[in-house]
Amino acid sequence: MSFQDFLLSLIPPVTILILTWIVAYSLRTFLRRLLKRTVPLVATHVSRIVWMFVWLTGIILILQQLGLRIDLLLLLVALFGGALVLANKDILQNLASKYFSDVYVPFKIGDTIKVREYTGKVIEINPMSTILLTEKEELISIPNTNFLREIVVNTTPKAWKEVIVPIIIDSEIDLAEFEREVIKSCNKFKLHLDERFPPILTVKSRGERSIELTLTLIIKEYGKKDMIISEVNSNIVEIIEKMKKKKKSRPRIHFKA
């Protein structure tokens, strides 16, 4: 094969690579806009999964273009994946339940809840189970799957008033400025919030690449809860996008600690 032929053979894989990048980027942007009014955590995860899927497909196609046999590889990946799912069915169920309960189940650490005959204060929510501390100082571990199947009663006074919105932001985003914008945006619907309790942003964890936060709001009436959550989510996505754009258009400044 001449050098020219070699170069020509590279055109299809390179084209697929570029197309994959374009599709992945466009889909992610599209999904973010589409999911603007959902919980930011869900939007982030969905767009991340789609992005990974597009890239996986792109890589398989590139390998195929390069003349490598991928049918065996696909079969092995599928078998391995299937075995993994079967072997860890309970763990995966709990992990999934934990993920969904993070977003949808109405309790948090510190709340007092009742599940079946068990009542206690939630002191830990780990990927597998939720730990309750009873009045007798006993620890009860409840597998997370139960929270999707069982009726959960949150007996914490005024728990219904508390709205906790999970947020993930890029660690490069200026947290102080982000918080300022979020608080200002919440002021716009203050009529529906408990005036005694300002919006509170709490850092839950901090990684090199991202910061996990929660925004706590105390609402006045239950009927407006969904609307408030939707509005807040939409505002947060907009703020994040705006700050990302601002960041890109500005040279990075570092100051020494």
């Binding site: 947290l175 918080e179 300022r180 914008e181 608080i183 200002k184 002021n187 005036e195 005694r196 300002p198």
Partner: peptide, 21 residues
Amino acid sequence: TQIFWQDEFSDFTFYNRLSAE
């Protein structure tokens, strides 16, 4: 309670966050 719902409160929070950071 009005102070919590004025834009100036976000500047107060901003300063506290800046200190914490």
